[in-house]
Amino acid sequence: MTPFAALHHADPPLLLPNAWDHASALALAGLGFPAIGTTSLAVAAAAGLPDGESATREETLRLALVLGSQPFLLSVDAEGGFSEDPDEVGEFARRLAAVGAVGINLEDGLGPAGRHAAKIAAVKRAAPGLFVNARTDTYWLGQGEKEAGDSEKWRETLSRLDTYQQAGADGVFVPGLTDPARIAALVARLGTPLNLLFSPAGPTVPQLAGLGVRRVSLGSLLYRRALGAALEAMTGIRDGRAPEGRTPSYADVQALGTPDPSA
């Protein structure tokens, strides 16, 4: 078992902050988080490109090249693998592993489950040591959990996750699922660690841990909060108020881009 995989079987569960550039990743790692993920929305937004449309393949690989050699474990959000060709997805995963990434997050976008399973299998052939976190978007792109059709959505979720586990996924990810009863039922059924997306309106991290969740991701939340803080600071300054909250110094930020001479 790789060190990254082992974090999915330890207590407390893996809390995975998602960074979007070199500075954010090192700052988060400096808080003691052993693993850092990337967030596809932030990578896309920073480049002026759409998220979820396979437009940021090179930007994602470039960020992995920057972060893969840092002293933390790196998991890369690769959308749907930036291709519908499983072999091309496998080659992309091989390149991620070659620059130091230890995990990849692959989303199905509610496309054919068989095609997503083929991508997972291709990644495991091309980069056997890469932890594949297989995401299904049944609760992310569909209607709200409590609306009509939830039973059908639940059955579809179970079917897809079964297929992805059989294809070799090391973990599974169901963003948008927040109902404690559903979470507990899913944990009891799965043979691989369950990853959920933290929601400020959903269960807390300790509550998710109590339900058996093994990985909690932040997704784009930190990036969106950072943008929100910048906007609040700017409008406050315009209106004659001093910015509130923590502001890293120039030297603090400069240090994030300066190699450690003792390393």
Results as ranks from 00 to 15, higher is better:
Arg115Lys: 15
Tyr139Gly: 01
Glu88Asp: 15
Leu106Thr: 02
Glu156Trp: 06
Ala118His: 10
Leu106Cys: 07
Val216Asn: 01
Lys146Ile: 10
Ser40Arg: 05
Asp162Lys: 07
Asp252Thr: 04
Thr258Cys: 10
Ala10Arg: 14
Gly219Val: 03
Asp137Pro: 04
Arg115Ala: 15
Ala122Thr: 14
Met1Asn: 12
Lys153Thr: 09
Thr39Gly: 01
Val174Met: 12
Pro128Cys: 13
Thr247Ala: 06
Glu88Thr: 02
Glu152Val: 13
Leu67Asp: 15
Val132Met: 14
Ala263Cys: 10
Thr138Ala: 13
Leu231Gly: 06
Tyr223Ile: 03
Pro261Asn: 09
Pro193Glu: 10
Leu196Ile: 04
Gly219Pro: 01
Leu15Thr: 00
Tyr164Phe: 05
Phe173His: 11
Ala118Lys: 09
Ala29Tyr: 07
Ala209Glu: 06
Ser262Asn: 13
Phe131Lys: 07
Glu145Trp: 02
Pro50Gln: 08
Lys153Leu: 06
Trp140Gly: 08
Val76Asp: 01
Asp51Ile: 02
Ser217Gly: 03
Thr39Ile: 08
Leu158Phe: 05
Leu194Ala: 06
Ser217Gln: 03
Ala19Gly: 01
Asp11Leu: 11
Leu7Met: 13
Ala19Trp: 03
Ala148Ser: 14
Thr235Tyr: 00
Leu221Tyr: 00
Val216Asp: 03
Gly100Phe: 10
Leu130Trp: 11
Glu58Gln: 11
Arg155Val: 08
Gly30Trp: 12
Asp77Met: 08
Val187Trp: 06
Ile36Ser: 05
Pro259Arg: 10
Leu161Asp: 11
Ala45Trp: 01
Asn18Cys: 03
Ala113Leu: 14
Thr247Gly: 03
Thr56Ser: 09
Pro203Trp: 08
Glu244Asn: 02
Ser83Arg: 07
Gly48Arg: 04
Gln70Ile: 11
Leu231Glu: 12
Trp20Thr: 02
Ala226Ile: 01
Leu130Met: 14
Asp108Ile: 04
His116Lys: 12
Arg241Val: 03
Pro200Val: 06
Ala44Val: 07
Phe92Leu: 14
Asp108Cys: 02
Ile183Asn: 07
Asp108Arg: 05
Pro206Ser: 07
Phe4Glu: 13
Val66Tyr: 00
Glu107Lys: 01
Val172Phe: 15
Ala35Gln: 02
Thr2Ile: 12
Gly37Gln: 00
Gly212Arg: 12
Leu110Asp: 03
Gly30Ser: 14
Tyr223Thr: 01
Gly32Pro: 03
Leu177Tyr: 15
Gly219Met: 02
Leu186Ile: 10
Val172Ile: 15
Gly90Leu: 13
Ala127Val: 10
Val76Gly: 00
